[in-house]
């Protein structure tokens, strides 16, 4: 059967749309996974499906969620950013430090600017030296953590008492009883999701991660695309840092250590390809929700939480195996 390419492809998928259905299942299988867990918990507990628990659930997902959104962009463009939470710490500390002299607004904006700057620096270092991003950002994260210790002399820093309340903003309730942190997370997912799927910059991100040489020979500035991605990841880290300040009322050099790996795990569980060039922002959202709901489930069912780690690890393995199986099948 030879069909000429047509603007509407409905006809080419046959009367039953089998191919499209299969493709949909492949694309959205992970969503069914999340729904299955949600359904299971709704049936087996009385406490899961309560507004309070659900609102709590989303709130718990925000910090890793914001990091995972940044990580998604990085991974799709073919790089890892292990410096994400070190950037988070430095920008949170910088924000508080600025607020001590110039007030809340300046501190808030300062934190985000710091995140973007640090992300840009990370990106410039990785792109210009062409070192492997995994090792490179690992080294950079150690430097940033060191910087955080220098800035604070190793101590916990807090905003001055008179503006401490302003910093708690993200922990407060907004529409539908959701915390403002949850809303921030939602807005970030939507904005960056649209950016990735609808803009030319998004297309370039996929191209650079899918085949850097092809992207380059098509006239895409691959280095600039990746620096941009690191900068966005830095901004996401800073936002996550502000959410953490709103909860703890303070920041410290060691904050959020290790969460960058949880974020990458969430990205992978959501179905974004670890090999680059493939994935979506909504997948990070689904991945993070799966991790959070599982944690919540263990809690509600009063299961031994040590097994939670086993489950999480197994999920990551399954996700990666599915990903590489997909590629193997495609390339055979």
């Amino acid at each position: 059967m030879t069909t000429l390419i047509t603007p509407t492809n409905e006809s080419s998928s046959g009367p039953w749309g089998v191919k499209r259905l299969q493709a949909k299942f492949r694309d959205f299988g992970i969503v069914f996974g999340l729904l299955a867990i949600v359904l299971g918990l709704s049936v087996s507990t009385t406490t899961f499906l309560t507004p309070g628990n659900l609102i709590n659930l989303v709130d718990q997902a925000t910090v890793v969620g914001l990091l995972a959104v940044g990580a998604t962009l990085c991974i799709i463009s073919g790089v890892f950013d292990l410096s994400a939470t070190a950037t988070l710490a430095v920008s949170a500390i910088t924000g508080i430090w600025i607020s001590q002299t110039f007030g809340f607004a300046a501190g808030f904006i300062g934190a985000i600017v710091a995140g973007v700057l640090l992300g840009t620096i990370t990106g410039l270092i990785i792109v210009s030296t062409k070192i492997n991003s995994f090792i490179g950002t690992l080294a950079i994260s150690i430097i940033y953590r060191g910087l955080a210790i220098v800035l604070t002399a190793g101590a916990i820093v807090s905003p001055p008492a008179e503006i401490a309340e302003s910093f708690r903003f993200f922990a407060e309730r907004g529409p539908f009883g959701l915390t403002w942190a949850s809303i921030l997370f939602g807005v970030t997912v939507v904005v960056l999701g649209l950016m990735l799927s609808q803009t030319t910059y998004g297309r370039r991100i996929y191209a650079v991660g899918g085949n850097a040489e092809a992207a380059r020979l098509s006239g895409i500035r691959t280095g600039a695309v990746r620096v941009g991605v690191f900068a966005i990841s830095g901004a996401c880290s800073a936002l996550a840092g502000l959410v953490l300040i709103s909860r703890a009322g303070s920041a410290q050099p060691g904050m959020a250590t290790g969460l960058e790996l949880t974020a990458i795990a969430a990205v992978v569980i959501g179905g974004t390809s670890i090999m680059g060039g493939q994935g979506a922002v909504w997948r990070a959202f689904v991945g993070v929700m799966i991790l959070t709901v599982i944690a919540n489930g263990f809690n509600l069912l009063q299961w031994d939480t040590t097994y939670q780690q086993v489950v999480t690890g197994a999920l990551i393995l399954i996700a990666i195996a599915a990903d590489s199986l997909f590629f193997k099948k495609r390339n055979s």
Binding site: A207, G210, A214, L217, G277, F327, N331
Partner: peptide
């Protein structure tokens, strides 16, 4: 394959 196409897209 090497210089031109994004095979997965």
């Amino acid at each position: 394959k090497d210089q031109a196409l994004l095979l997965g897209r």
